[in-house]
Design a protein around this nucleic acid. Sequence first.
DNA 1: TTCGTTAACTAAAACGATTTCGTGTTGATA
DNA 2: TATCAACACGAAATCGTTTTAGTTAACGAA
Lengths: 349, 349
Amino acid sequence: MWKSSEKTMGTKITLKKIAKELGVSTSTVSKALSDSHEISQDTRDKVKAFAKLYHYKPNSLALRLRNQRSMVIGVIIPEIVHHFFSTVISGIEHGANTRGYNVMVCFSNDSYQKEVLNIEMLAGGSVDGFLVSIANETQELADFRHFEDLKEEVPLVLFDRVHPFINCDKVVVDDFGGGYKATEYLIKTGCNKVAIITTPDHISVGLSRKKGYLKALEDYNIDINPDYIIKIDEKKDIKEQIKMLIDLPVRPDGIFAVNEIYAATAMKIAQEKGLIIPEEISFIGFTDGYISQFSNPSMSTLAQHGHEMGEKAIALLINRIESKEQDYPFKTEIINVDLKIRNSTKKIT
Amino acid sequence: MWKSSEKTMGTKITLKKIAKELGVSTSTVSKALSDSHEISQDTRDKVKAFAKLYHYKPNSLALRLRNQRSMVIGVIIPEIVHHFFSTVISGIEHGANTRGYNVMVCFSNDSYQKEVLNIEMLAGGSVDGFLVSIANETQELADFRHFEDLKEEVPLVLFDRVHPFINCDKVVVDDFGGGYKATEYLIKTGCNKVAIITTPDHISVGLSRKKGYLKALEDYNIDINPDYIIKIDEKKDIKEQIKMLIDLPVRPDGIFAVNEIYAATAMKIAQEKGLIIPEEISFIGFTDGYISQFSNPSMSTLAQHGHEMGEKAIALLINRIESKEQDYPFKTEIINVDLKIRNSTKKIT
DNA sequence: TTCGTTAACTAAAACGATTTCGTGTTGATA
DNA sequence: TATCAACACGAAATCGTTTTAGTTAACGAA
């Protein structure tokens, strides 16, 4: 096995080792590698050749420690198996890379504990800023101290799942508008018994979408039927809960679901019962992901422009990081949603 | 605005600042915080109170630099919008967390450049080990130098998209077996014109699945029809390429697709042409994700057990990290796949 | 008184890099 | 010959932490 020459110096090659091997000081090596005019061409060449030979790479930890900059952005999202977050991250990556930053993603799995842990892991020098979407459990607990502590150290931008108690830059989807548009469309295509499948009220986005739904009903003078509002408890069987809605004596003729899964599940159930879609019952979901695209009939849905959200969020964050004056006011940007009509709804006449 | 007291000391609170403020040395502060018996109870209390008051958190960069351990695992995957990788990551996370490690995920977006960049960002002290699934472009270029360099520094485990040229621990799905099982099932349910929708041959998993397909045909004495093997070029329109298969004069009566998207797209096309599924044409996909679950008819598919793959991979990696003797032989683990029959295929009689 | 012990700290090195400020040797010029 | 600048390099501080190896002072015992 050749390569003993590498081993003799120890596994990791550092400035110090190069210096010792070449009989110069570390400062000389450092300067030579950065082509400083202080160092003779001769020495520079020698050092560079040696460094290349041994694949020298500066230790990034040491660099970050010294420069007090990491050029890395930490992202924390609640779920990984989620089309929308995927698109947001692609936007974040794009924006970050074009401005010279790198991105690291961690997952809270909607757990408060893991959210705190992730933040602790990344805080303290590892990243220059945070982009986070709050875990469900954290929203439920309404305990945001970890964010407060964080904000004093490093900039924070919240996206999608945000909370009014936390004072920082935010980017959110127009959830209210989306709920309104969906409900309005169902009404306009002849549904007068519009139901909503949503989340418990502590989930901020679900709540906003429901508010949009309620406002639309109000604007069109339709009475609110509490039976038509179901809040899914994810700990129980989702299918059973949706079945109860569709089995109601007076069955809804239009269903707005606050995410793809609920919408697709509801549609499956309706199909199993032999209902004709969209004539007998229409569906609109939220998030234009694969499920909506490949369901049959294809699902009408609210497209959220996750990529755009990611780009906006990272822009806000990097601006905050790179501005010296820390105290310009916090912004909240709202990303528009588009109603994408496919075949799970009737057409407007 | 109260909080001036915090500001007077500078934004970031460090050991040194605590020491200065309390008139002791940094060593004392460090020891006090770790409850060393060398420090009097009095001082310990004082230091701890002060640290808590100012939310002192040790700088993780400094810690890692000193300990030469980060307890962080770097994961690099090609795509984010991908159900299978999501499940693998959940397995990785689970395994890592139970052994005290944290996980950071980066995305190569199937680009060679970004793969190299990500590795450079994480290497050099940031992480204790790498878990990577090779980018398509890297497989095409067949340039693996960045992995070779890496391996000398820190352990590497490859999963799913691997390559024989890279000598390290690996975890792969039984792609060959999956291709075989799918094809065999189609044949056994009466399909004698089985087609495959796959990727170009440089994609390792696609190639293995195709080999399984070919072996099954051979074992059942069915001649190979080159028209029935189509390799999707993702740069062109996928739908068009699949349409050509289904529009063939002698239409296939069974289609095995090497991923969910191809399978679902093919099924949609067949439905648009009015074909009856599964009687006139059957479908089997790969990856048991949302698309397969929510398509209509629901998709028969090969379940890959991504979670298990993640757990295996992280176990391999951590064992490698924590073993002093670096030279025990490299392992390749193979994860079984299960054929999950739903409604896009006929039943075995 | 002197030695030894202990309690309670501090100094300094180390991790790997950069950078400011020296410092010693040339060679040219007054 | 003395002075100065240019050149090529080194020492030391710095980033934030831990840890080893001292260093004091007090007290008890011989």
